[in-house]
């Protein structure tokens, strides 16, 4: 098996909340991403998934108090690295695209300047070669008129176009890992599919590993190799995408899949009963227990450890594949 390109080992993140309270919003997370792998990190809002994404590039908001555990990339521990190590990696080895294409580009700068400054920051290309490279990338994100796009300002482009510019900007230095934090959430449904397809096919072309963060399992049906499901800052289930989607073992994963709209059958979409409890008052035991249809008395008595199944790990005392009604 290949060496992982990114290895997250027992990562915990504490943040400062109002009134001097410390909250642990990411709790003891571990997973590996292999070179070229499309890794989907799935969770509802508040599950801590964006915080993990930002922790990898160390782009955390001021409220973050500390990172425990390790984020290993290229022989370094990014969780405890200094700026002088991080800056050359950012945008060069690891790139990131964000949820809001409307606000992630500088409104006062042309697209060309925003792309060329990403190249110049790492000094890989200059002058005409750089310009040709920018045109090539804009073509790869399927702009038919790259030169016109280069002259444009962000406000002249639609949300989908801006997100494609962001993808071009993220890939411009041929990184090894792309972190995509809900890159399609703010877009129209029709544009979502296009942007997703661009990310997936460019990842294949470049042999790029992708950490794709989403709340929507349906988005990663086709492209993900590996899925990790996050709930309340903890990993609930992790394993090969196909196995998890076809036969979820954790009741939460199963509930998430039930939420996916079935367009063809027109079946009514189910939500998950209840809401995510607030981070400050987690119940003892399984964090999903309060909303779980298969709850048993032992679920809330003690911490639930990972259970290793042949093809995956699941944090549940009674995984569905063994005990659920068919």
């Amino acid at each position: 098996m290949a060496e992982p390109i990114l290895s997250i080992d027992r990562l915990s993140i504490h943040v400062r909340a109002g009134g001097g309270v410390r909250l642990k919003i990411v709790d003891d997370i571990s997973f590996d991403i292999l070179p070229g792998q499309f890794f989907a990190l799935i969770g509802e809002s508040g599950s801590g998934k964006s915080m993990i994404a930002r922790a990898i590039m160390r782009l955390m908001p001021d409220e973050v108090l500390d990172l425990r555990g390790e984020i290993r990339f290229g022989g370094h521990d990014l969780a405890h690295a200094g700026e002088e190590l991080l800056r050359p990696l950012r945008g060069s080895e690891i790139s990131m695209i964000f949820q809001e294409p409307m606000s992630s580009l500088d409104p006062l700068m042309t697209i060309e300047r925003q792309l060329s400054e990403a190249v110049e920051a790492h000094g890989k290309r200059k002058g005409a070669a750089m310009r040709a490279h920018i045109i090539d990338l804009l073509t790869r994100v399927r702009f038919r008129n790259p030169e016109q796009i280069m002259r444009s300002y962000p406000h002249e482009l639609s949300g989908g176009m801006r997100q494609r510019v962001m993808i071009a900007s993220a890939l411009i230095n041929e990184p090894k890992l792309l972190i995509a934090d809900e890159p399609t959430t703010a877009l129209d449904v029709t544009i979502q599919a296009q942007v997703l397809d661009i990310i997936a096919s460019l990842a294949r072309d470049y042999g790029l590993a992708v950490l794709f963060i989403s709340h929507d399992l349906s988005l990663v049906y086709e492209n993900a190799d590996e899925i990790a499901v996050l709930y309340g800052g903890m990993l609930m289930e992790r394993g090969p995408a196909r196995a998890i989607i076809e036969a979820p073992a954790h009741p939460y994963t199963s509930a998430l899949l039930a939420c996916v709209p079935r367009r063809r059958t027109g079946a009514r979409q189910e939500g998950i009963e209840g809401a995510v409890p607030s981070v400050s008052d987690w119940p003892p035991g399984c964090r999903f227990a309060a909303r779980c249809a298969w709850r048993q008395p032992q679920c809330t008595q003690h911490e639930i450890a990972f259970l290793d199944l042949p093809d995956r790990r699941v944090r549940c005392v009674a995984p569905l594949r063994e005990s659920a009604p068919a």
């Binding site: 790139s95 964000f98 580009l105 400054e117 962001m166």
Partner: peptide, 13 residues
């Protein structure tokens, strides 16, 4: 603003 985060993510000084 988010574009400042973007520019940090680009690796700008």
């Amino acid at each position: 603003e988010e574009f400042i985060t973007t520019s940090v993510a680009k690796g700008l000084t």
